[in-house]
Design a protein around this nucleic acid. Structure first.
Length: 204
DNA sequence: TGCCAGGCCCTCTTTAGGGCCTT
């Protein structure tokens, strides 16, 4: 896979913190190549314990659905192959990155790819939106969806579309070609009030 | 016993507090 491929991913999990014992229960991802979805990955995985009623309600993923799912270790090994050589994107990437790092560590793998965050970019580029939850941004931007949120592949699909909208927003606002992944990484780290200054310097 | 995430970002800030976002 060429180095400019981007995997947009989303985890469903048993809770908020792998350090508190939470595990992944589903991974969904789309692979983008030059702005087009060229591959997809979706898999439930059995965390080895029952999920809470809150998580079952929140995600729609029940213990019955997980009972015959493969283990996290098996799924994450396959997912490591899927993302090899790709840049990574997620909405609130710090959340997905900590679960990816934790699940990989259990099978002696390291997560080393650059990881961009559509939440941080949206806060900088779409400041008029009431909030920057994924669902709000999807509705605000008119991104096609089937109304199902909190399932991994669905969220990854719309986050992929959000990523392309963010890229288009940069191109239109600064009348420049489609930004590289590296430029998006730099933009997400700029203080809001320095975006214009940063881009003027970047574009020369 | 009681506690229980953590990074980002704003502001009535920086010797801090609290909202936002993810499950």
């Amino acid at each position: 896979m060429s180095q400019d491929a981007i995997v947009v991913l989303d985890f469903e999990t048993t809770g908020l913190s792998p350090l508190q014992g939470d595990r992944a229960i589903e991974i969904g991802a789309v692979k983008l190549q030059q702005g087009v979805v060229v591959d997809r990955f979706q898999q439930l995985m059995n965390p080895g314990f029952a999920v809470s009623s809150f998580i079952a309600d929140y995600t729609g993923i029940t213990n019955a659905m997980l009972s015959d799912a493969p283990s996290c270790e098996t799924v994450m090994a396959d997912f490591a192959d899927f993302i090899q050589g790709c840049h990574l994107v997620a909405h609130n990437a710090s959340f997905d990155q900590k679960f990816l790092t934790a699940e990989f560590a259990r099978i002696d793998l390291e997560q080393s790819q650059p990881f961009a965050c559509s939440l941080l970019l949206a806060r900088r580029l779409f400041q008029a939106v009431p909030n920057h939850q994924l669902g709000t941004l999807v509705n605000y931007l008119g991104i096609a969806n089937d109304g199902v949120f909190h399932r991994a592949l669905n969220d990854a699909e719309v986050t992929g579309a959000l990523w392309l909208a963010l890229s288009d927003a940069v191109s239109q606002r600064w009348a420049c070609p489609a930004p590289s992944f590296e430029l998006m990484l730099k933009l997400q780290r700029q203080p809001k009030h320095q975006l214009e200054k940063f881009m003027r310097a970047y574009l020369g």
